[in-house]
Nucleic acid binder design. Structure first.
Length: 297
DNA sequence: GAAAACACCTGAGGGC
DNA sequence: TGCCCTCAGGTGTTTT
C-alpha cells in the first residue's frame, strides 16, 4: 500500500523518466480512474495531448506533474495522481503486454517508453487540475499537511496541533490535514518506536512523547525511503516495476504473534477503523480506561 | 466545527 | 469445483 516513501520513490521515477517529455496520445481504459476529472475523458485527453510534463511534485501521497504548452509556456494545470491502495505508475516499453488492470496509457512524441496507470482496486485516480497561484500546489491538495520529511515541516506547529486534538493518537496520525503521508503501516511502526499505544488520547501526550513520536515517524519514513519503500505483494512497485525491501524491517505491522524485536512479547493485532492495528502489548500498553478517550456509543 | 462512521472497490484466500 | 464470506485500507462524503 503506497504511503509517503512509496509515493516518493514513484515521484523520483517519474522525474527521471517522464519529465521533459511531450505527450503524443492518451488512452483512458476505465472511467473510474479519472472520476475526479469532472469534465470527462475527452477533456482529460485534450488537456494532456501535445503538452509537456515539466516536473514531478509530491505532497503527502499525492503526485502532480505540471504541463506546459509546446512553446514552453505553462498551462497553469497539472496531471494530479493518487495511487490509492493499489495504483501503479509504470514506465514501460510499448511492446510490453497490457496489464490486467491497465486504466490509462500515455505515449510520447519521442517514441520511447510509455507511461501506464495500473490499478487493481480503483481507489486511485488521475485528473487534470488547475495549479495554485504562481503554479504552486493544486488547490484541491492545499488541505494536505506538509510531510515530516519536508524541510518546511513545522515541528512546533505539529506538536501544538496534535495536543489540541480530542482523539486517539493513531487516528490523528492518519489525518492528512495534520501530518501528510502517514498511513496505517508507518503509523503502527512509528507508535511502536515511540512506545505508545494508538488509543492514547492526543491531549494527554507529554511534549516529550510527541517529540519521540515525531522522531519515530521521521526515522521510519526515512529508512523506508532508503529501502525503496515497503512491499507486501505485487501491489506496490516503482515506475520500473521493482518492489521495495522495507517489509523485511517492519517491527510490528503484519507481525501478529511474532516476537517483538525489542522485548520478545508476541505482537498483537487489534481492529481499528475497520482495519488492523499491530502493537506490542508490553512496550505499548493500552491506556487505562480512566485515561482513554470516551468513545461515543 | 470537529470527530466518527461509512461507502467505494477488487482479488486473494479460507471455509464449506 | 464453485460459491460465499472476510480482509486489505486511503479518501471523500455523510452523520453525529
Amino acid at each position: 500500500m503506497p504511503e509517503l516513501p512509496e509515493v516518493e520513490v514513484v515521484r523520483r521515477g517519474l522525474d527521471q523518466w517522464v519529465t521533459g517529455r511531450t505527450v503524443a496520445s492518451v488512452e483512458v481504459h476505465h472511467p473510474r480512474a479519472i472520476r475526479r476529472h469532472l469534465e470527462g475523458a475527452d477533456s482529460f485527453v485534450q488537456a494532456l495531448t501535445g503538452r509537456t510534463f515539466v516536473a514531478a511534485h509530491r505532497r503527502g501521497k499525492y503526485l502532480w506533474l505540471p504541463v506546459a504548452e509546446p512553446d514552453g509556456r505553462s498551462t497553469g494545470r497539472a496531471l494530479v495522481a493518487h495511487l490509492g491502495m493499489s495504483g501503479q505508475l509504470l514506465v514501460e516499453k510499448a511492446s510490453s503486454p497490457d496489464e490486467t488492470h491497465l486504466r490509462a496509457r500515455f505515449t510520447f512524441t519521442d517514441g520511447g517508453r510509455e507511461l501506464r496507470f495500473v490499478d487493481q482496486r480503483t481507489f486511485g485516480g488521475l485528473a487534470v487540475e488547475d495549479l495554485g497561484d504562481g503554479d504552486s500546489v493544486p488547490p484541491r491538495l492545499a488541505h494536505i499537511a506538509i510531510d515530516p520529511l519536508d524541510e518546511a515541516f513545522d515541528v512546533d506547529a505539529f506538536s501544538a496541533a496534535l495536543r489540541r486534538r480530542r482523539t486517539e493518537v493513531k487516528r490523528a496520525l492518519l489525518d492528512q490535514t495534520l501530518i501528510g503521508g502517514v498511513g496505517n503501516i508507518y503509523a503502527d511502526e512509528a507508535l511502536w518506536r515511540a512506545r505508545l499505544h494508538g488509543a492514547r488520547p492526543t491531549e494527554k501526550l507529554a511534549r516529550a512523547q510527541v517529540a519521540d513520536l515525531l522522531e519515530g515517524i521521521r526515522d521510519v519514513l526515512g529508512e523506508a525511503l532508503a529501502q525503496g519503500g515497503t512491499s507486501f505483494d505485487s501491489l506496490y512497485v516503482d515506475v520500473n516495476g521493482q518492489s521495495g525491501y522495507f517489509s523485511r524491517f517492519l517491527a510490528v505491522y503484519g507481525q501478529q504473534d511474532r516476537p517483538c524485536p525489542r522485548c520478545g512479547t508476541p505482537i498483537r493485532r487489534e481492529s481499528f477503523m475497520n482495519r488492523s492495528s499491530y502493537s506490542c502489548p508490553a512496550c505499548q500498553p493500552r491506556p487505562r480506561a480512566s485515561s482513554a478517550r470516551k468513545r461515543p456509543a
